[in-house]
C-alpha cells in the first residue's frame, strides 16, 4: 500500500529528535485519527539551519515528517512555508488516499513551528488553524 520512498523514510526517518534550544516549536494533533506531531526549528538569518521532529502515528505520518524535515532544511523560512502538502506527497511517491491527511498534518506542524519562530522574533506571524479534514486524493 505504501510507495518504496514512504517505506524508506519510515524505516530510516531523518531528523528525529528534539532541539532543546529551538527557535520555534510547532505541535499538531490530528482530529481525524489522533496522530501527534511536533516540529522543532533552529533559524539563523531567516534560514532553517536545523530541524527535528517527533511523531506518534502511522507509517505515513512518520514518512511525511521525515520528508518535510529533509525538504525544508537549509531553506529560507518563507520558502519553507510555501511548500505544499501536495508537494510532500509527490516527493514521497504518493500516499494512499486515506493517508493524505497525514501530509496536511505535517504541513500544519511545520507552519506552526515557523510562525512560532516569527512570533518570538517580533515578525508578522499567523496562527495556523487545525488541519483540514481528510482530503480525498
Amino acid at each position: 500500500m505504501y510507495s518504496e520512498k514512504v517505506i524508506e523514510h519510515f524505516r530510516n526517518p531523518r531528523n528525529v529528535g528534539v532541539i532543546e534550544d529551538a527557535d520555534g516549536v510547532g505541535e499538531v494533533g490530528n482530529p481525524v485519527c489522533g496522530d501527534m506531531m511536533t516540529f522543532y526549528v533552529k533559524v539563523k538569518d531567516g534560514i532553517i539551519t536545523d530541524i527535528k521532529f517527533k511523531t506518534f502515528g502511522c507509517g505515513a505520518a512518520i514518512a511525511v515528517s521525515s520528508m518535510i524535515s529533509e525538504l525544508v532544511k537549509g531553506k529560507n523560512v518563507d520558502e519553507a512555508l510555501s511548500i505544499s502538502s501536495k508537494a510532500v506527497v509527490e516527493a514521497l511517491g504518493g500516499l494512499p488516499s486515506n493517508k493524505i491527511h497525514c501530509s496536511n498534518l505535517g504541513a500544519v506542524a511545520l507552519a506552526r513551528a515557523i510562525n512560532d519562530y516569527k512570533r518570538r522574533n517580533g515578525l508578522p506571524y499567523e496562527n495556523i488553524p487545525e488541519p483540514e479534514d481528510v482530503e480525498e486524493g
Binding site: V32, C33, G34, D35, G57, C58, A60, A61, N98, H101, V134
Partner: peptide, 9 residues
Amino acid sequence: ACTSKSLAA
C-alpha cells in the same frame, strides 16, 4: 485508527 480504512479507532 491508522490501520482502518475509515480512520476510526
